[in-house]
């Protein structure tokens, strides 16, 4: 069985205990995906699994067999930066940079969820098909990604900018 990681087929590990996170970092040396808790509580290990944001620390690598994994290393096309990556730099959406890949991966999926009209806990009217972008919506939807340096404002500003540019 194989996993497609950033477009490349890779073997899944023999040991079923190996998390997708450890497989990426230790097995494939794709260390852009970070380990912050291994408890499903911080979001630093966020990757896209078939386009959906998930926690790679609580995903066994074997569960990703036959599926497509996108990590921070595969987020942008070519050598350039993804618009979110540029916006994070512009708005200083990080300090130490450790939670950053997880924040950016989560944000990229979140933008798509917003565009598809997926509601959140703070969406006033769940019946509405469209969700309007607001900082509060972004904050709620990004609350699964902890940041200890306190770059929250910059992160939200960066995402808000990309979200509204996209919509414009």
């Amino acid at each position: 069985m194989t996993i497609r990681v950033n477009g490349t087929e890779v073997a899944s590990p023999d040991d079923a205990r190996v998390s997708l996170l450890d497989h990426l970092r230790e097995g494939l040396h794709l260390t852009g995906t970070k380990v912050g808790c291994n408890q499903g509580a911080c979001g630093a290990c966020t990757v896209l699994l078939d386009g959906q944001r998930v926690l790679s620390c609580l995903t066994l690598a074997v569960q990703a067999d036959g599926r497509e994994v996108t990590t921070i290393e595969g987020l942008s096309e070519g050598d350039g930066l993804h618009p979110l990556q540029s916006a994070f730099i512009e708005h200083d959406g990080f300090q130490c940079g450790y939670c950053t890949p997880g924040q950016i991966c989560a944000a990229s999926a979140m933008l798509r969820e917003l565009a598809e009209g997926v509601p959140s806990y703070v969406t006033a009217d769940l019946a509405q098909e469209h969700v309007s972008v607001s900082r509060e919506e972004i904050r709620e939807r990004m609350s699964g990604n902890l940041c200890r340096c306190g770059a929250h404002n910059g992160i939200v500003d960066a995402i808000f900018q990309v979200a509204t540019e996209k919509a414009a």
Partner: peptide, 12 residues
């Protein structure tokens, strides 16, 4: 459901 956990966890 939306009150629970995080978006990542709910996706899983």
């Amino acid at each position: 459901i939306l009150a629970g956990a995080s978006a990542q966890v709910r996706n899983m």
